[in-house]
Structure formats: C-alpha cells, structure tokens
Design a protein around this nucleic acid. Structure first.
Lengths: 208, 208
DNA sequence: TAGATTGTTAATCGATTAACAATC
DNA sequence: TAGATTGTTAATCGATTAACAATC
C-alpha cells in the first residue's frame, strides 16, 4: 500500500497541478513538482510510480491526467461528510473555509456546549447543543469529525464522535486524543508547531 | 544535534508533564510518555537521553526536572516576538489564542490588505495596512511571522516578512512558501490534512 | 532479594536518494 | 542524432525498535 507520507505528497502534487492547469500548462516535470514540494525529483517519480502515473521523457507528466489519477486514488468523487465540535474562533474559521467547498467537502453540523453558540447558523452551518450530538447524527452518514474544543474536553468529544460512527478525526486541541483501530486520527497540535518554529528560529538567530 | 522529530516529541512530553505537575504527579515513566504520544518507551528514553535527562529505575523521570530541562533546551525563558499577516477568521483565531500566552509568546502586530480590517485592535493586537509592514516593523525584533492570507498572496507576504528580518515563518495558506537558508519555514497546509483524513477514513469505511 | 525500569547499543525497518538504462 | 527526462533498482540514510546489563 501507499504510505501516509506518499499520500501527503500526492495531495500536494495534485493541488499544484490544479494551479498549473488553470494557467494553461499541460505538462509538468518531476523536477517542477520536486521543487514545489521541496524534495528530490526521484522522490516524485517514485511517488507517481507507486500509483501508476506514467510520464513521457520529452514532456514530463500530463497535468490533467495526473489530477485525475490522484483524484481517483483519493476517491474524491465520493464526497466527504463532516461534523465539527467547538464553535469558537478556530471552529468558525474552519466552517468558513469549508462553506465554499461544498458538496465535495461539507460540514453538515456543528456542536458546542455553550448556550450562546448553539441553535444558530454559523458560516452556513447549523449548530446544536453538544448533548444532542448522538440524536442529531443518528442515521446520518458522518465520515470525519473535527475537534476544536479546549484540550480538557477533547477526549470526551472524540469518544462521542466515535460512538456516532465517524471513521476519521481531525483534532485541533492541544491534547492528543485516542480512538480505536477503526478510526483514523490526526492530532494537529498547533501549539507544538509554534514552539517548534520558535525554537528553530532562535537557533538560526544565534547563528546556527 | 537533536532532530526535528525529537524536538516535536520533546515539546509534547513537556506539555504532558505540565498537566501531570498540575495534578500533583511528581514522576512519570517512559511508558506513560510513550502511551500519551503513541510511540514506544524506548523512543521516549532515547529522546530524553539525547538532551541528558536522567530517570530513576524505581520512579521514572522527575516531572518538574523534565519540564525545566526541556524548557532550557527550547530557551523558553527568552520569549518570542511574532507578527501575523491576514486578519481573516483563522488569523483572528490565532490572535485570540496567543492573547493569553503573553509575554512568552506574543503577537505584537497584525497586517492586512483590506481597509476594513486595519487600524483596529483585534484580540488585543493592533492591525496595520500591509503596505506599512516594512515601516512598522523597522527596528523592532520580530522572530516569527504567521501567514494567514490566501494562497495567491502567501509567497509575497513571506518575502516581505523575510525582508523585515524574521527567522521563522508559519504558513497556513494552502500554497507552500520558500525562503532562504536563514529562515525556518513550516508550511501547515490544513487543506491537505483534511484530504488525507478523508482518504484514510474512506479506506477504513471500505473495510481496511 | 525479586521485579520493574532505566540507559545504551545493536538490529531492524522504512523512507530517501543516487544511479543508470530506456525512452522520447 | 544528442540531450534531457523517465521508470526502476540498488545504495544510502536516518529513524525506530528490540534487547539487555545496570540500577533502584
């Protein structure tokens, strides 16, 4: 099977190809893709080989074909149903982002524990009390749950989402959550990212 | 030197230890840290060894000592000065987050290109027109720049930030930015993350 | 002491990169 | 043809894991 890292890179190749396509570019070399993603051409060729993309030694890879093949792999045509828990600033930002991506990616419900944040429409998405999560999602297909609550509540929310049948979770809280083997979990941990960048920039400032 | 991956894990160990400390726990085993971060105890011990943390075969590692040693490594006492470009939903969410973390982490200025978003105070932070970035930051120490603008503008903003002297960039736009060897750049790419989680959850739904 | 955990090295694993014949 | 790029394998590299003597 294709590794997680390869999937990550393929998604970025695809996005780059979409840009190129919109600019009218028909072909792209492994060198271009490597340069865009900060890796080596042989890495790119290996990634593309893994999913059976073939190029041409004269023109490189066909941009449209590449997009289609990666979309096929990702099963992009199927669409994805999401729900979000935690209608704070970050939650709203994410709701706003996905509002435009319907119907491929679509957040169909949002939940919060605070009175003032529920029974409203936020960025085109209806919000409900967290206590109604089970009932609201009952019988609905929900593939991915997005967690944008404080760390202290994250695991409890994850458990609720898993009980509601999600098979993927994106957790933006600073506390990693755990699930079952039947759930793919991505802990984003932005706080860690900022500390990391702070560390490496100090290192650079102090002259390597 | 300590690898990037080790630094990432150390930061998470530290955060976990802070939790434990606030709960009154004085010691922690490599097994606990491994369980929290989803890796192996030997990985944890190797990471801690790398920065000279010593444990005790009876009690494990001292929580407070661990926090202090990791903070020393990260030079956390120094504080970090940040600026943010793009006062949209995500930008506001990040401003809100860091408002509480002063003075260790502090966003001291924000910029945007839109009239309606500048010359205001957003989450305790003053916003300026992007065109004033150079002048506003002149002579000020700014370690890290945060990019929360649309992809099309990201590279231009990165160039401005680098010119203004940042040594670290956290880019939340969907287009990776490039810098010089004297700048540490972290491209977050949330859109890729969502596509990735969508892919792996579909994989799980379709029975492995 | 007996049992569990640490510190550390060796072994393993997986991912990246180099190399090069085949191709356009 | 000559030159650059692909497809693919072998070599390299780095990170993870297992193993185990030393320790508490």
């Amino acid at each position: 099977m294709v590794s997680k890292k390869t999937i990550e890179r393929l998604i970025i190749y695809k996005m780059f190809c979409e840009q190129l396509d919109s600019q009218g570019r028909e072909h792209v070399y492994s060198t271009d893709l490597a340069n865009y993603t900060d890796n080596k051409p042989s890495q790119v060729r290996r990634d593309l080989m893994a999913i059976g993309c073939l190029g041409n030694s004269k023109r490189g890879y066909n941009v449209v074909a590449l997009i289609r093949q990666i979309n096929d792999l990702l099963k992009s045509h199927e669409g994805i149903h999401m729900t979000l828990v935690g209608v704070g600033n970050l939650g709203k930002a994410i709701l706003g982002y996905f509002r435009l991506m319907k119907p491929k990616f679509s957040i169909e419900s949002a939940f919060d524990i605070e009175e003032s944040k529920v029974n409203r429409v936020v960025a085109g998405c209806r919000s409900y009390p967290l206590s109604d999560l089970r009932a609201t999602l009952k019988g609905k297909q929900v593939d991915v749950g997005i967690i944008t609550v404080p760390g202290a509540a994250a695991q409890k929310v994850a458990d609720l989402l898993i009980e509601a049948g999600v098979s993927g979770i994106v957790n933006f809280s600073p506390i990693p959550v755990k699930g079952t083997p039947k759930v793919f979990i991505e802990n984003i941990h932005m706080a860690m990212t900022f500390e990391k960048v702070a560390f490496f920039s100090k290192l650079i400032e102090q002259g390597k």
